[in-house]
């Protein structure tokens, strides 16, 4: 089977900074890929390129066999490639259920839906799936806790019934307790919806539980790719995080 998502020789520069450099990646259907790398490595920029929020200087992005490099973000989303953002971005002055309902009026959801009237129910169910129940369902999004906001972001993406979901630091800002709830949630969604996931995350302990494969970025380049074990034992990776001699440090503290 051809990869569901393929990045070929992607490049993106901001003035003097090369945010993404000669980036290649193949994502198979159903995979969960963890995307890691130090701050400023270019992970979020890569998401922005894939989802059309930024245009690459060169290179192509293939999704389900189609070239999506020049498409607008909403077109890409409607093809089934949906993202969340690094900072939670709820529609603050709208109810949680309204937040989710918006996505039900995307072209993709409209096509997938037969009964027009079931939108409220669908939004309600999507919230329930991520663990948001009444009365929170009917609260203004700005009044929800940070943990709920993260889940709201995911529920908003879910109503599009995506094929590939890109999560930008889903554990960002979550406490230990909330993190421990997020992990099984992501696993459940992956299992039930046959989702393909790319997850940017700094919290390695959580990511290792979920990801089948890790991709490591530094200065815009892919410096390692492989199973969690392979990658964490790669001296280049330890160096990227801890500087020269980092490998010894890693080895000693295992």
């Amino acid at each position: 089977m051809p990869p569901i998502l393929e990045l070929k020789e992607l490049n993106k520069r901001f003035g003097g900074i090369t945010a993404v450099k000669d980036f290649n990646l193949q994502v198979e259907k159903g995979q969960i890929i963890g995307l890691i790398g130090p701050n400023g490595a270019g992970k979020t920029t890569l998401f922005n390129l894939i989802t059309g929020f930024l245009k690459p200087d060169s290179g192509t992005i293939m999704f389900k066999g189609k070239n999506i490099t020049k498409l607008k973000p909403h077109k890409i989303a409607n093809m089934g490639l949906v993202r969340t953002f690094q900072l939670v971005k709820p529609f603050k002055r709208m109810l949680a259920i309204e937040n989710v309902a918006v996505g039900c009026y995307s072209d993709r959801s409209k096509k997938k839906r037969k009964d027009r009237d079931d939108v409220p129910q669908k939004a309600f169910d999507a919230l329930q799936r991520v663990g948001i129940n009444p009365p929170n369902t009917f609260k203004l999004a700005m009044t929800l806790s940070h943990g709920y906001s993260r889940r709201l972001d995911i529920a908003r993406a879910l109503v599009l019934e995506p094929d590939v979901l890109l999560l930008d630091e889903p554990f960002g800002g979550l406490g230990a307790k909330e993190s421990n709830l997020m992990t099984p949630l992501i696993q459940k969604l992956h299992r039930e919806d046959n989702l393909t996931l790319i997850i940017i995350e700094h919290k390695m302990r959580q990511l290792m539980k979920i990801a089948e494969k890790l991709v490591v970025m530094q200065f815009g380049e892919k410096i390692a790719e492989g199973t969690c074990r392979e990658v964490t034992e790669d001296p280049k990776v330890c160096e990227a995080y801890l500087g020269k001699g980092g490998h010894d440090y890693f080895a000693r503290n295992k």
Partner: peptide, 10 residues
């Protein structure tokens, strides 16, 4: 941006 990201032709 979020509206675009969830498939709305803004």
């Amino acid at each position: 941006d979020v509206a675009e990201a969830i498939g709305i032709n803004t």
